[in-house]
Amino acid sequence: MRRAMTYILPPNLSVCDAGGQRVFLDVAADRYFALSPAIDATFRRLVDAAEPEPGDAGRLEGLVARGILCSAPGDARPGYCKAPRTPRSDRDSFPDSEPRRLMTLAAVAMLGRTIVDLRVRSLERVLASVTKAKRHTVATAVTGCAARHAVAFSHVDRLVSSLDRCLPRSIALARAMIADGIVPDLVLGVKLRPFEAHCWIQHDDLLVSDHLGAIAPFTPILVL
């Protein structure tokens, strides 16, 4: 008997359930999007392995035609982004010490390079570079070492406005930590009503780049 075709997400897409609404991130196109209510309901039934309703087959094939799904044999189906560990503490837990001057200057330089990198290369390539660096890094530092980077980048915020720069700041912080033998999670999250996207850095259950309250409204949509 011929097995029914199933569907998966292409590698450039990730999805989360943000309060009952599916939100997608296409890193190749550097955009967020949602589906119409009827198609969103079809996609939810697919993820939940629920009984399909009339019209679902046609809508799923339409998502394949739009590049939102890929048909695949077997029992695989798309899933929501898996959230990292819930943070228990944030950068306020670090002592408010004065970072070494050279470390602060290195953080400024890393942020500058990352801003330029995002202007000349695609988001997909920049994120892929972070994933590759993590994959080739053997974690040698303990959680306490993250404090040095958190403090250094908080001092950078006093020199350079962090407004609307959570993405380059987070990528720069991740790169600095990886170079120091710390393997963090780079998290992109979204919230609705109104729509906003945010990016932050975690190391295990420690929120390195933010305050706990700042990320609370956001649902992770991509974790690297």
Score class of each variant (00 low, 15 high):
residue 127 L to N: 05
residue 116 V to P: 03
residue 126 V to L: 03
residue 123 L to N: 06
residue 116 V to Q: 10
residue 138 V to N: 09
residue 113 R to N: 04
residue 130 V to I: 11
residue 131 T to D: 13
residue 127 L to M: 12
residue 134 K to S: 07
residue 143 T to W: 11
residue 113 R to A: 07
residue 121 R to F: 11
residue 137 T to K: 03
residue 116 V to A: 11
residue 125 R to I: 07
residue 128 A to P: 04
residue 115 I to N: 01
residue 144 G to A: 09
residue 115 I to A: 06
residue 141 A to C: 10
residue 127 L to H: 03
residue 140 T to V: 13
residue 125 R to L: 10
residue 143 T to Y: 11
residue 128 A to V: 01
residue 119 R to W: 12
residue 127 L to F: 00
residue 129 S to Y: 01
residue 139 A to Q: 15
residue 132 K to E: 12
residue 130 V to W: 00
residue 145 C to H: 14
residue 120 V to F: 06
residue 129 S to K: 07
residue 126 V to S: 08
residue 132 K to L: 13
residue 131 T to K: 13
residue 126 V to A: 08
residue 130 V to Y: 00
residue 143 T to Q: 15
residue 114 T to C: 07
residue 136 H to F: 08
residue 141 A to R: 11
residue 130 V to M: 02
residue 131 T to V: 12
residue 144 G to I: 00
residue 122 S to P: 06
residue 142 V to S: 14
residue 140 T to M: 14
residue 141 A to E: 15
residue 122 S to Y: 03
residue 133 A to E: 10
residue 126 V to E: 03
residue 133 A to L: 10
residue 123 L to Q: 08
residue 131 T to P: 02
residue 114 T to D: 02
residue 122 S to N: 08
residue 117 D to T: 05
residue 141 A to I: 04
residue 113 R to I: 05
residue 120 V to K: 07
residue 114 T to M: 04
residue 124 E to G: 02
residue 130 V to D: 01
residue 145 C to V: 00
residue 143 T to I: 05
residue 120 V to D: 03
residue 145 C to A: 14
residue 131 T to N: 11
residue 115 I to T: 11
residue 129 S to M: 10
residue 144 G to N: 09
residue 132 K to A: 12
residue 125 R to N: 10
residue 123 L to D: 04
residue 134 K to E: 07
residue 128 A to T: 05
residue 134 K to D: 02
residue 123 L to S: 06
residue 142 V to H: 13
residue 118 L to D: 02
residue 132 K to S: 10
residue 120 V to Q: 06
residue 134 K to G: 03
residue 114 T to N: 03
residue 130 V to F: 00
residue 123 L to Y: 01
residue 143 T to L: 12
residue 114 T to A: 04
residue 120 V to H: 05
residue 117 D to V: 01
residue 124 E to P: 00
residue 116 V to Y: 13
residue 139 A to H: 13
residue 115 I to F: 02
